[in-house]
Write a protein that binds this DNA or RNA. Structure first.
Lengths: 152, 152
DNA sequence: TATTGTTATACTCTATAACTATA
DNA sequence: TATAGTTATAGAGTATAACAATA
């Protein structure tokens, strides 16, 4: 039952399928999950450099550039040059982004929130704990990465 | 803490990020998560029609056609015409697919299985329960779908 | 030279629309 | 006409490679 091999298999498929479903259930007029994820990270940890954001989101710099361009076009985030190192870009949430983020997140969560109401309080508790564990798994460092970029 | 709105937000981001990470950590020489998901469903529920497979995987028919074409090219699944209704395609796992599926799944799960070893037995238990709940959420029916196709 | 970020390009996964074959 | 599946096409999200600017 808690054989790590079967668990890995079950968890992997469940995550894949729920992620696929969540993408489909996005409201058309709102931000995509990728944009919300980045915006939430800027909101929580910003201002931060584009590179730091890419690391926190665990995507490559070009991917972050794309997302940032869309968030900037939507007026929700802004990029400024770092006066102390002109190579860097400092990313922050705009006042409009700050005003809208909670609502945007709530709206985009509507489908899932409704389905969660079908579950019991105990099941909510399991999912809350699991969400924290999945974040840890998603962020887990590994040898190969540590080798590639020595983050001290 | 178990406010469904915050839970939805946390769960959604966690699933999105772990799914992204899992995709990156796929071994190059193996099947993709999408292929494995489909193959596992054929293995478990097949033989079944292409349409049934699409419904179980919760994707549209063209998406299944693509995945089936790749699985067939890899010799792991096969499509046969249904003698009783020549419009339908019956999908099944080939002997080669049957021989290889468990190993393919295990290989592709290697990264996650290794990271799960960092967790406690209690945490494994939480994830196992959460995986079942996430499958339920991913498969949850809704009004609009029920309207579109009256599945009795 | 090394680092930071962007642009150019390509690939995967998914969808909708249009089409073919069959019922 | 309606249904099952495929092909054509498009869009999102991500990557690697090449580039420009700065340290």
């Amino acid at each position: 039952m808690d054989d790590p091999l079967f668990l890995a298999s079950d968890l992997r498929l469940a995550v894949h399928r729920l992620a696929r479903r969540l993408r489909v259930e996005q409201p058309d007029d709102d931000l995509t999950l990728t944009q919300i994820s980045a915006l939430a990270t800027i909101w929580r940890f910003g201002p931060l450099t584009a590179g730091d954001l890419a690391q926190r989101e665990r995507v490559r710099p070009p991917s972050i550039s794309r997302v940032l361009a869309s968030l900037e076009a939507a007026g929700l985030a802004q990029r400024r040059e770092n006066p102390r190192d002109a190579r860097q870009v400092i990313v922050s949430v705009t006042p409009a982004g700050d005003r809208r983020i909670l609502e945007a997140v709530r709206m985009s969560e509507a489908w899932l929130a409704e389905r969660l109401q079908m579950l019991t309080a105990d099941e909510h508790d399991v999912l809350a704990k699991a969400a924290a564990l999945m974040e840890r798994l998603a962020s887990a460092e590994e040898r190969s990465l540590a080798d590639r970029r020595a983050t001290t």
